[in-house]
Design a protein around this nucleic acid. Structure first.
Length: 221
DNA sequence: TTCCGGCCGC
DNA sequence: GCGGCAGGAA
């Protein structure tokens, strides 16, 4: 079942993936850092404009570390959660001071930076440094719990380590997990969406625990 | 566990 | 109007 899962998912991704986002055509750690800060709890749609503005105004992490807080807040404002401006600048400062301006390439150094938690740390390791790690967010949780029928006793499955371990087992053997992680994000955001998943057009449906466990007439209308 | 938050699809 | 969004911190 694992092989079918990846085959169907990656085939879908090759045809329908959102490959055009600017943070997907780079592995610059600074650019990835900015992107991940902006993407958290934020719909992708308006992030691109803000992302470009920030990189244009603050061309490198040194520039960002000296940024004016209120100016950066104004740029981020349309996305909400503008307190991210303060954290982003603080993180830039610490990277300049403690890491000679180089975004850390190890987990322990990353998560001690303000605004960087488990997800963003893993995202940077994956997308900037090519490490075969798995950033686990709501999309990953939703897709794997639905398809493989996994459950969690935790009220917040996102931080369930047992569930996370099960999910990461599915990535064993990959030298890079970049395409796989991006495929999940796109698929979970476009097909396996939170409300009413598009099971009718879902290439995984016939193998999906969630789909097979409920009334298909109800799902397919 | 709760809060942060503007935005868009329904 | 409401729910949900590439989470993190207190």
């Amino acid at each position: 079942m694992n092989e079918i899962f990846w085959e169907k998912l990656l085939n879908w991704y090759a045809e329908n993936g959102r490959h055009q986002y600017p943070w997907r055509t780079t592995n610059d750690p600074y650019h990835i850092l900015v992107a991940e800060f902006l993407l958290q709890q934020t719909h992708v749609r308006k992030v691109e404009e803000v992302y470009k503005q920030i990189l244009h105004k603050y061309v490198d992490i040194k520039k960002l570390s000296n940024a004016d807080v209120s100016e950066l807040e104004n740029i981020i404002a349309p996305l909400g959660l503008k307190y991210r401006a303060t954290r982003l600048i603080l993180t830039a400062k610490e990277i300049c001071i403690q890491h000679a301006g180089e975004v850390p390439s190890n987990y322990n150094d990353l998560i001690q930076l303000p605004g960087i938690g488990d997800y963003i740390a893993n995202a940077i390791l994956c997308y900037a440094y090519g490490q075969p790690v798995v950033p686990i967010d709501t999309n990953v949780i939703r897709l794997f719990t639905r398809f493989f029928g996994y459950t969690s006793n935790n009220t917040r499955p996102r931080v369930d380590k047992v569930l996370a371990s099960k999910i990461r087992d599915h990535f064993k053997g990959f030298k890079s997990t970049r395409s796989e992680n991006l495929a999940i994000l796109d698929f979970a955001g476009l097909v396996c969406i939170a409300k009413k998943p598009h099971s009718k057009e879902c290439p995984l449906a016939q193998y999906c625990d969630y789909f097979n466990s409920r009334d298909k007439d109800d799902i397919l209308g």
